[in-house]
Structure formats: C-alpha cells, structure tokens
Nucleic acid binder design. Structure first.
Lengths: 201, 201
DNA sequence: CGAACAATTGAATCCTTTCAAAGGGAGTGG
DNA sequence: CCACTCCCTTTGAAAGGATTCAATTGTTCG
C-alpha cells in the first residue's frame, strides 16, 4: 500500500521528474517545502486531516496545474489520485526571480481554489455534484463521456459530503436524465444545459 | 444606500487611496480589473451571487491583506464590511516585474483562501463558527474580548449557513461556556482550548 | 473460491433550513 | 420626549436533506 516513487533527472537543469503510484504521497504535512510541483500526467489531490481523522480534499490538480506552493513547512498532504508524473520545481522562498517565475502559477492556483470554494458554500449535494461533473468533463475534454478517475470517497471528501450521499445523488442525476453512467466510473452528460443550471452557471 | 467613494492620490507614485463606506463597493463583478487592492483600514468582503440571488462571501480581507487579484475581468464583487480605506495597486497583468512584486501577496492570499476552504468542508455549524471566532480574535488581537464587525447575515454567507443558524449556534456556544457575549457584537472567548478543539486545531 | 475493497441500498436520526413571528435597538419626525 | 419605523436578532415549529448505522451487492485480485 505504500507507494514506490521513482526519481529520475531530466535534461533540464534542476528540474526533476517524480513518478507517484496511485494513492502514493508526493509530500506529507509537516515536511519541509523543498519544491513546488507541477502535474505532468495524472491527478494529484491536496488534503488535510482534522483531529477526528476525517480527510478533506482541498484541491484536485490535473495535468498542467501547479501545486504545493508552500513556504517553509507543508500545510497539507499531496497524494496521487491515479498514477501520476509530476515535475519538481526548485524554489527559493524569498528570491524575486522565483516570484516572477511562478507568479502566474500562483494566480492560476488562486483562481482554482476560489472556484472550489464556490462548490462548498451552502449548496446542496446535487448542485455540488453537478458542478463537479462539469468540471471533470472540461478538464478531460473528451466528447463521448469521460472517466471519473476517483472513487466515491474521494469525491465526497472533495465536495464536503459523505460517500453515501455522492452515490445516491449520482443515481438521482441519472434518473432525472441529466447524466448516464456505464459502471460507477464512466459518465456521460445528457442534459448539459440543465446540469449547468443546476450547478449555477 | 449607494456608497460615496472619495479618491485621493498619495505621495507614492501611482498608488491611490480609496475610501469606501460600509457596504459600499470597491469593485463589481464584470468590471475591468484595473488594480489590485490592499486593505489599509477596515474590512472588505469578496462575494459572488448565484442565479437565485444568494450571496456567497468567498473571502474576508483585513488590514494588510491584498485582494482583487484578478486578471482581465472581475470574477467577484468586493464591498466594505465596515468603513474601509484601501490602496489601489497598479498592475500590468503580464509584466514579470508585477509578478515579482506581488508574488508574496499572491502566496498569502492563497494560504488564506485555503484556510477558508477548511471552514467549509463537511463541518457542522458550531465547528465553523468556532473557527470563525478564533480567526476574528486573532485578526483583531484584542485581549479583553473583541468586536464582531459584521452582522449575522454576513457571517452566515461567509460560513455557508443561514443567519438563523448563526444566531442559534452563537447562543449555544454561550450556554456551553465557550464564549460570552455583550450584545450581539461584543464577544469574549472563555474556553479557548475547548473552542480550539471544537474548531479542529 | 475467498478476501478485500468499492458501491449501493434501507431505515432512523440528527442537523440545518425554511417559514412565520416576535423582541430589541437606533434613528427620525412629530 | 414619545411614537413610529426600520433593521437586525432572536425564537418557535415544521419540513427537508444529509449523515449515520447497518447490511447487501458487486468487483478485483491473489
């Protein structure tokens, strides 16, 4: 169950490539923040654990996304949702060159986090799930349906729900003709406009 | 009810000072993003409105906080929670110098937004309110209690609750001896440790 | 096949929201 | 100074929705 992570250096100076198996850690809360990261392939989640051991997924990072922009100590844990390849970006916390280099990445990350927040504020389960599925569809830009590359538990922890509710709501969306499922992880959006309305777009 | 905003230039080049009365707008969703802002005095909220007209406060900005880091078009609306003074920071979206200058501000904003997110993910009303009060206490760093500088409605929209629940939960925290209230807006934390436990710290 | 994990389903409980109404304080005008 | 209004807060009761607990079904993989 522990992930094996293979490290290999690329031809770019100081940029390393890290391969992380499904559910394996990229870094762990409390670690020294040696690098920032960018997703090359796969999906990475950032999460925190509260006193009761409940996990909260505070971010999902897809190919192209930069994550782990901590200074000093890691405030969250990053794990691969599916097998992933990430770039390790060296950074000197106070160097202006770093800020210049990553300013845009920071800005993008900020935008994404704010969108995530919109998912969580006084919204019902179907609204959250609708917005989530739309986001997934767009991130994977497949036309003929798309895979949901994580289990119900992951989705629940991301949307602030319990996984039973995710399951029930998913089925409800099917019954209402908004989506179609082929197995638990293959999804196709039927009623795009209605789903967008539901998600508040 | 419309805010009057007085503009005056400071002795710093290109930095302007904006005064905004309580509930007055700093900028509005859809505006061109001409500046970034920093709070000099007072409190500013960033919010979005969904199709039903429900407001969601996605951020509270206190003295020293930078906000409004949009590029292009405003994706949210910023309003003064109480009378506020803000600095208008010019920025050129793609200039590296800007990124270097504001990289740290972006990073701080990112940290704050992630903390806000932690408030919202599958947490009960008392946990959210507990964390909120602790945050307020720290931001105002008064020892002998502190003012809650916004009404129940603002708090509710920030915590993703309805204002009735905020009211009820506040009273419940009093009954449990975690806090003391003098009127609706003056608060003192009695059981700091228990409140921290409740808030998941 | 058995084991472990993931997803679904059912029933009961708990919490928050919703709807409705009553207090309470600040400010205005007579 | 009092009556009145407005807004914010509190309170009550009912309804709705998500969670919790418990159990079943389905899948994957040794």
């Amino acid at each position: 169950m522990i992930a094996t992570t293979a490290l290999s250096s690329s031809n770019h100076s100081r940029i390393q490539v890290l391969r992380v198996v499904k559910n394996g850690p990229v870094y762990i809360e409390g670690d020294d923040a040696m690098h920032w990261y960018a997703v090359a392939e796969g999906i990475v989640r950032s999460c925190r654990f509260d006193a009761d051991g409940n996990r909260q997924v505070i971010g999902l990072h897809f190919a192209g996304d930069v994550f782990g922009m901590d200074a000093g100590v890691r405030l969250d844990t990053a794990e691969a949702v599916i097998d992933a390849k990430v770039w390790c970006l060296p950074h000197e916390p106070d160097a202006e060159v770093t800020a210049a280099h990553f300013g845009k990445a920071l800005w993008k990350a900020l935008s994404r986090v704010r969108d995530t927040q919109t998912l969580l504020g006084r919204r019902s389960a179907d609204e959250r799930l609708g917005a989530f599925l739309l986001m997934l569809m767009r991130r994977t830009d497949e036309q003929e349906g798309f895979d949901i590359p994580m289990n119900r538990h992951d989705i629940a922890d991301y949307l602030g729900l319990c996984y039973h509710t995710v399951s029930r709501t998913m089925i409800q969306l099917c019954k209402e003709g908004l989506i179609e499922m082929e197995g638990p992880s293959r999804c196709r959006i039927i009623g795009l406009e209605r789903l967008q309305t539901l998600a508040g777009e």
